[in-house]
Simulated assay, not measured.
Amino acid sequence: MSTRIAIIALTKGGSLLAERLAALLPGSEQIRSRGKVQETLARAWQQDYDSLICIMAAGIVVRCIAPLLRDKTTDPAVVVCDEQGQFAISLLSGHLGGGNALARQLAALLNGQAVITTASDVLGQTALDIWARDLGLIVADKSRLTQVMAKLVNSGSITLCSDYPLPPLPPDIILIDKREQADLRVTCRTAQWPRQALLHPKALVAGIGCNRNTPAAEIAEALRHACAENGLALQSISRLASIDLKQDEPGLLAFSEQSGLPLDFYTAAQLNSAADSSSSAAVLRATGAKAVAEPAAVLSAGGGQLAVRKRKSANVTVAIAELVSFFLPR
């Protein structure tokens, strides 16, 4: 995915540096402020730039962006440079937004110095938010993770327990077996202990059966309820599955698109070949398959075990299976 960078300068000398950087940085463009810095920054903020390079005093930038700040997961990275290119200051979204990396990149291009104040970077410790993101793990509670990150900075290490195999861990993350004592837990479950942060892998598949013309909202609610009553994280659902007769089902297709979850379809013969699934005479008469939700989930999970057997509401049937050989990317 390409990165969009806006470069905004205040002075004539700053504009010359902005032109130079725009030629050196792929995906970057100079935005002329014409003396209206606050308006220019606000406009750039709303235009979905990934990063803003501000060639001006840090104080000006702080005052201009203060009303725009929302969340570190959505705010763009902001790096401040002086017009001589001596310093590149990572001001905002240093980790997840890539501000620290951009500051280092600018320092290398300009033969200047990157100014990084993020504690984990300064101390050479693992940036837990980036580590989790790179492994495809979803943070259940940002405030909990912030507390664990603070513990890592203050004590030098934290503990982790995982329900799944992980690639080699950084030296400051210590793997333990006792779930209740771990600072971090990688799991599809929602139960947690005090001060523990949960990281959810995309390790579950939801099989969906539904009546014709069932709305997307009703399907979404049925899946949410199935996860909640079984202590599973909705964030751990990686994909959906159903019978091929539903390939034109508007509500199911809409839910797939809205949730960003891929949708697999199987024939009746394929569904009938799946092991460990219940059967329904009514479903068999209507579809030719003994069941839909359970075998669809099992097949899409590569033959994985059912974590939740079929749960039927008025118009939707949901079953959840665990990926058979789930592993995190190296």
Rank of each mutant, 00 (worst) to 15 (best):
I7D: 04
G13R: 14
G13Y: 08
G14T: 01
S15P: 00
L17D: 04
A22S: 15
E29W: 02
S33A: 15
R34G: 00
A44E: 09
Q46N: 15
Q47F: 02
D50Y: 04
D50M: 05
C54D: 05
C64I: 04
I65M: 01
A66G: 10
K72T: 06
T74H: 10
D75H: 11
V79F: 06
V80W: 01
V80F: 00
Q84F: 11
Q84H: 13
A88E: 04
S90M: 06
G94M: 03
H95Y: 09
G98T: 01
R104F: 02
L110N: 05
N111W: 02
A114Y: 01
A114V: 06
D121Q: 06
L123H: 10
G124E: 04
L135G: 00
G136L: 07
Y164H: 14
P167D: 07
L169N: 08
K178Y: 00
R179F: 11
Q181W: 06
D183T: 07
R195P: 00
L198Q: 03
L198S: 05
N211A: 09
I219E: 04
H225W: 12
A228E: 14
A233T: 01
Q235P: 05
I243L: 13
L245A: 10
Q258H: 11
G260L: 07
F265T: 04
S273K: 09
D276I: 05
S278A: 14
S280R: 05
V283D: 07
R285C: 04
G288N: 08
V292I: 15
A297I: 01
A301W: 09
G302P: 13
G303E: 07
Q305E: 15
V308C: 11
R311E: 11
N315L: 11
V316Q: 05
A319E: 12
F326W: 14
L328V: 14
P329S: 10
